[in-house]
Nucleic acid binder design. Sequence first.
RNA 1: GGGGGCGUAGCUCAAUUUGGUUAGAGCAUCAGAUUGUCGAUCUGAGGGUUGCGGGUUCAAGUCCCGUCGCUCCCGCCA
Length: 574
Amino acid sequence: MRSHYCGEVNERLVGKTITLCGWVHRARNLGGMIFLDLRDREGIVQVVVHPEQKEIFKLAQTIRNEYVLCVTGKVNARPGDMINTKMKTGTIEVEAAEIKILNTAEPPPFVLDNYVPVSEDVRLKYRYIDLRRPEVFYRIQFRSKLVRAMHNFLDDHGFLEIETPHLTRATPEGARDYLVPSRVQPGHFYALPQSPQLFKQLLMMGGVDRYYQLAKCFRDEDLRADRQPEFTQLDIEMSFIKEEDVMQLMETMMQRLFKDLLEVTLPAFPRMTYAEAMQKYGSDKPDLRISLELVDVADLLKTVEFKVFSSVANDPAGRIAALRVPKGATFSRKNIDDYETLVKKFGAKGLAWMKVNDLNDVQSPIKKFLSDEIVHAILRRVGAQKEDIIFFVADNYRVTSESLGALRVHVGEKDASAWKPLWVTDFPMFEKVDGHWHSLHHPFTAPQDMNNLAHGLSHAYDMVLNGSELGGGSIRIDNIETQQAVFNLLNISEKEAREKFGFLLEALKYGCPPHGGIAFGLDRIAMMMAGASSIRDVIAFPKTATASCLLTNAPSTVSDEQLKELHVQVNTKE
RNA sequence: GGGGGCGUAGCUCAAUUUGGUUAGAGCAUCAGAUUGUCGAUCUGAGGGUUGCGGGUUCAAGUCCCGUCGCUCCCGCCA
C-alpha cells in the first residue's frame, strides 16, 4: 500500500509522488485549506489539502483525529517561512492528490501528545492507543533492537537457541508457582516455569555445550515497579567452563550491547566480593555512582554508656556502622526524621546522628553518652570534615547493613548519566532464616569448599549496574554426592529429593560435564538502557501491581463447565 | 500479609484544610467562522452516580465506617 513511512519523507524526495499510510495525528482546518499531520511508527509528516482539489477537499473536511488514511501526493519543499524546525520532516510537506479513508475513528480517550499527562491505568486499558505515541513506541522498538543484538552476539559465539517447556512441574523451593490444572489427569497440576534452570542443565548433560533462550518466566509473588508476574530472562548455559569464562564472555556481550545501542563504552567490570559489598555499601547490588561508604565503628563503642550501642558492639552477630554525608549538617529535623522512617522500614530501631559543625564542635543527641576521645576517634575513622553529618545504625549485621545501605542510596549524590557496572562474587552458599537454611542463589549452585558447606562460599556471581541486579548465575553442581549433600542441608529428605528432583539426580549419574551459566532480567536491562522508570514501559502489555491486565480484564472467572472438566472446585469463602 | 499516596466531566486537575447557593478550569468533543497552519485561531454549545455501599447532619465532593481500583515501599521474589 505505502511507498514510504511518514517519518522517512525528506528533501531528497521533493518532486516525487509517494503513498503514505497512517493515523491522523491532528487535523487543522483553516477553512480555505486543510492540514493533516499523518503519523506512522516512524514519524509524522504534514499533508496539505488545497481547495482546488474539490473532491479531496470535501472529503478532508470530514477527517478527524486518529482516522486511518492512505494518502498519495507529491512531496514539496516548504518555503523558508513555512519550515517547522520542531519537526524532523518540517522542511517538506505532501500535497494530497488522493486520500482514502481506510477507517474512521472515535475520538481517543486521551490526547496522543506527550505534553498532556495521562494516568497509567488509562494508558494500560487503551494500550493499543498508547503504543501509537512515539515516546511509548520508541521503548518497545528499542527492546526489539536489544533482543536482536543479543541474538546476534550469542549466535556469533556458538550458542544454540533452544526452547524449554512452559508446562512443567511445581518446584518445592523458591517463589510461588502459577499452576495449570491437568484435564486428563484429575487432581494433577503443571506449573509454569519460574526459570528454565533444570532444563538448561539437562541440555548441558545432553551435550548441547552452549545454550541460550529468551525465556518467559512466571512467579506468583507481589509486584514492584521492576517486577512483573511474567517476565523474560535471557537464559544462558555453557559446558566445560569456569566462573571466569562466563563472566568474561557476558561482560563482553554487555559492552557490545551498550556500544551498539547507546554508543556508550563500558569499562572493564570491577569485581567485588559479596562480603565487601555488604561491608562498604550495605547491599549485594551496590550503586557505585554514589561515592559514600559505610564504616564500621563497633570496636570504638564497646564500653560506652549508651546501651543501644554497647550491647550491639559486644554482640558478635551485631554491627554498628556509620555513614558520613558531606555537607549534611544542614539537614533539618524533618529531613532526619524522614531518614529515620526510611531505616526503620528495613528493621532498624532508630537512626543516631552527629552534626560536625566543626571538628571540635559536634552536635548530637547521643553526645552525652560519648567521651570526647571516642567522638574524636569516630570523626577520624570516618574522615569527618566540617559541615558533615554522620549517621549511625546499631543492629544485627543484616539490618544495619541494609538500612544504612538504603539510606546511602537515598541521600547519596550521583551522576544520573553515568554507567557503573560490576560483578559481585563469592556469595555465601546459604543463609539461616528462622533456624532454616536457604540457598542464597539456588540449590544447584556449586560450593567452593565441600569441607565447609554450610558456612562456605559458592561459585555464584551477579552482574550489577547502577544499583540494580542485571543478572545472576553460577557454576552448577555436576555430581550426585554434592547435590545430595546440599539437599540434606536444605532439609530436603532423600525421599522428597527423589520425588521432586529424581530426574536431575538420575541425570547426574550418566556423565555430567562441568557447566554453569547466567540469567539476565531482560525487562530490567531494557528499562535501564531505554531510560524508563518502570519495566512496564518496555513491555507491550504489562500487568498492574495486583497482577491484572486492564486491557483484557485477566484474570477472570471461568464457567462451571470449564472447572468441572478440569476437576477443580472453587472456594472463595475464607 | 503490613504501611504510605491517589480516586471529582472523555483526559489532566481545582473546590476537601474550616460541611453551606446551581461542583469549576484547561485540553478533548460538537456546531459555526477562517487560504500557510503545525499544541492553529476566534465565536458558541453540550458534557458530572464526586470510584462504590452505608452512616452522622437541617445540609456531605468535604466528616465517620466499610469496600473496590491504581500506585510506591517493607515482607515476599531459591
